[in-house]
């Protein structure tokens, strides 16, 4: 009955999130750029430590999730903790900055932004 579990960890996600499955995370987008504002302190949850270490430069939420191997929604909860205590700051995408209750997805992007995207892509 013994089963090899070398790819798993004993940490269950509800322990990582302290029992929370959601927070008011509308403020954090999947590509919000996270920057740490302080160094990790001893005794900090290991995920928080890793986030603070990997975000010395801006890093998108999805990248953090991929590196931690955790679901994006769980990472958002962890990020909320750090945001609330001022340990990180978040740079939100301008397209998601003003979430409107209406069909926000049909809103077309600003032409000046698109122009910059084109220039950036041409340089590739």
């Amino acid at each position: 009955m013994t089963r090899s579990v070398d790819r798993e960890d004993p940490d269950r996600l509800y322990i990582v999130t302290g029992g929370r499955s959601r927070v008011d995370e509308s403020s954090i987008d999947s590509v919000s750029l996270i920057v740490s504002e302080c160094d990790p302190t001893p005794g900090m949850q290991s995920e928080h430590v890793k986030i603070l270490r990997m975000c010395t430069g801006p890093k998108a939420v999805v990248e953090i999730a991929a590196e931690l191997g955790l679901p994006v929604s769980v990472v958002k909860i962890l990020l909320c903790d750090l945001l609330d205590t001022g340990r990180i700051t978040a740079r939100h995408p301008s397209s998601a900055a003003a979430p409107t209750p209406g069909p926000a997805k049909t809103r077309l992007p600003d032409p000046t932004v698109l122009k910059q995207v084109l220039v950036g892509l041409e340089k590739l």
């Binding site: 987008d29 999947s30 590509v31 919000s32 750029l33 920057v35 890793k50 270490r53 990997m54 010395t56 430069g57 801006p58 890093k59 998108a60 990248e63 590196e67 740079r91 995408p93 301008s94 397209s95 992007p109 932004v113 995207v117």
Partner: peptide, 25 residues
């Protein structure tokens, strides 16, 4: 895991610290 090695993990230089707007396609 310091910053350097985690960047190696993604195989690229970090984003410029001035980057403030992320777009999606």
């Amino acid at each position: 895991m310091d910053l350097k090695s985690s960047d190696q993990a993604t195989g690229a230089a970090p984003l410029p610290s001035t980057v403030s707007n992320a777009l999606k396609i």
